[in-house]
Design a protein around this nucleic acid. Structure first.
Lengths: 348, 348
DNA sequence: GACCGTTATTGAATCGCTTCATTGCCCGCT
DNA sequence: AGCGGGCAATGAAGCGATTCAATAACGGTC
């Protein structure tokens, strides 16, 4: 019976540790989970055996037996987008403080993978899930209704209030940008961004329009783009130049990349100097917004804060499952830089 | 159609499904894992029960019983660095094709978290682990010797050949950049980058030096920087300007950001036009290298390929554990752009 | 109808852990 | 001595799957 010939391969189990240390299996478990319940000397003996055998606890067995896990899952739509990386950082920060681990799964913009990843985490029986989808991925609507693991949505409004969530007040962001330009005396504004079926863009535009309508002698036009990259900014800039100098004295771009593209082209053309002739704002606080040759004023998405808030909401849900779900809306903030203030304004 | 029992009740188990469908528990298991062994009609009945009860397989129990998992873990040093995101994409691509899932854990540049994450994945009994550390994080040396899960290293040379790994031939990258400039007729070169204790930077410099020494009338100088960001590039550019025009006619930067910073400043100063007076190359193929106002020629790290190669190596290790470990070295490649070729050269 | 080879289904044993009701001990009090 | 209470330690009963030997059911043949 006492055959301890473990042919090389498989890792030692708790039972192996127990017999090696001359204690019961339950004692080993206690050493690991409730050290205070075990006498000092015994504890030391067990730890010694653990070290000697190179024992590694099997979390699959652990969470099966305990019926709970110490990891949460984070489903992100696109790791290539630094916004999601910020969210991840926020989530990790909070979870780590609580001794929980964060497993990240990447959907890479594919809705089917998003569904798959959600199922994966469900099967894994993680303690909870934070879902950060893209505005465009609709897939979740078909999955969400049947979920049973505690779940928090980031940046996506759950139609019904079935899940807790974190959102950004996009309209407010648009207002901030517009008011900034208006305060600087700009009156002939232009909002650029698109496609407009993205609700975030739509909201930003609404905010801009609202802010402008509050100032009697100000006006704002809208130019829809097909995307939000530098290239789209460059293309649009050419069209703007073609309209002639003075048509606009302030431009609100729906993304930093768009703004950077605009600035790159405009600033080369007489009559379109940035910001003296045309002030430009971006959106997202992309790392490169501050690094381009003319640092771009921007609206910062509170990505990290969104992540940490989502984590808080999730912990709440995990700890008292009866809690009423709720949605937290966070405000973006303005970061003024050279592209609106001019070179006199130095950042640190 | 009708019932939506989403609340609180603990999830149904395989036993529940079995009794609901009027079959044995083993049959349910077969329906899920060896469908061909179950008669069509039975299979359908079981699937119906699964759907009706909303059964979700418990992967903790599954991998405990089966003694194997269908997920692999990926430990990345810094999700904020797009190089690691590329690696992740490569890993996912290969694994997905094999029906395996990838769990990503982020160490956020902290060595202690790297160790923790490695332990986490060990405990989780994933099928294998891919470790993508930073050049600087030394911590793994203390962990690696005792590992027992199949493991593959990315971008870090295991001193002993204990683990399979994927690397980049950094020296070759340096050579490519230098040869490119030499071919364009540049002879007074400068390599910039740092800190030099980073082995990758060191290697690139070695490659550059080797290439230059092969051309009799060419020379190369070295300027060490304290970091690789745009800011460092800007600062260095000022020093270069101070040396006067003509000192160098070609600069090899150890990162794209560095190169972008250099170009931004140099190109404004008479006698330092890029690329006519000074040609500049970057390194990493950062997304923004191609988007800056003067697109920067660069050496592309094959991040995605590194990831997929690592995944292949890992699968090999998982499938036949006896396999000899090996290290694959990949070559970076040159992407010439305006900062060396001039505006005549259009990219698609 | 008896016999036999497939094909389907069954259910007990098992994976490695947590839990918790018990048991053993030791010590102080009455 | 006897009793009660606190610690320590024990070990069996799950947790929810996979496996696999054993059994049942099903056709075909002679």
């Amino acid at each position: 019976m006492t055959d301890s010939t473990l042919q090389g391969r498989s890792l030692p189990s708790m039972a192996d540790v127990a017999s090696h240390a001359g204690v019961a299996i339950g004692t080993v478990s206690n050493v690991l989970n409730n050290p205070s319940k075990v006498r000092e000397t015994t504890r030391r003996r067990v730890f010694a055996s653990i070290a000697e055998l190179g024992y590694v606890r099997n979390d699959a067995a652990r969470s099966l037996a305990a019926g709970s896990s110490t990891s949460v899952g984070l489903v992100v739509a696109d790791l290539g987008n630094s916004f999601f990386v910020d969210i991840a950082r926020g989530v990790e920060q909070v979870m780590r403080r609580r001794g929980m681990d964060v497993l990240i799964v990447n959907s890479d913009v594919e809705p089917t993978r998003e569904v798959h990843n959600l199922e994966l985490l469900d099967r894994s029986r993680v303690a909870g899930i934070i879902l950060a989808p893209l505005d465009t991925s609709l897939a979740k609507s078909s999955v969400l209704p049947t979920r049973s693991t505690p779940t928090v949505l980031v940046n996506y409004e759950s139609p019904t209030l079935t899940y807790s969530g974190v959102q950004v007040d996009e309209a407010h962001g648009g207002m901030l940008a517009a008011e900034h330009l208006l305060t600087l005396g700009r009156r002939r504004l232009l909002f650029v961004g698109g496609p407009l079926f993205l609700t975030a863009i739509q909201r930003r535009w609404e905010g801009v329009a609202r802010a402008v309508s509050a100032v009697s002698d100000a006006s704002v036009a809208l130019e829809e783009t097909r995307g939000l990259n530098i290239r789209h900014g460059r293309e649009l800039a050419k069209r703007i130049v073609a309209m002639g100098p003075g048509t606009y004295d302030g431009i609100i771009a729906a993304s930093d990349l768009l703004a950077i593209g605009l600035v790159q082209v405009l600033n080369e053309v007489p009559g379109f100097a940035v910001p003296s002739d045309v002030a430009v704002t971006g959106y997202d606080n992309n790392h490169f917004a501050s690094e381009s040759s003319i640092p771009v004023s921007t609206i910062a998405q509170p990505g990290e804060e969104m992540g940490s808030t989502a984590a808080d909401l999730l912990l709440e849900l995990i700890e008292k499952p009866q809690t009423q779900t709720r949605t937290v809306t966070l405000a973006p903030r303005l970061i003024p830089r050279t592209s609106t203030l001019g070179p006199a304004w130095h950042r640190d």
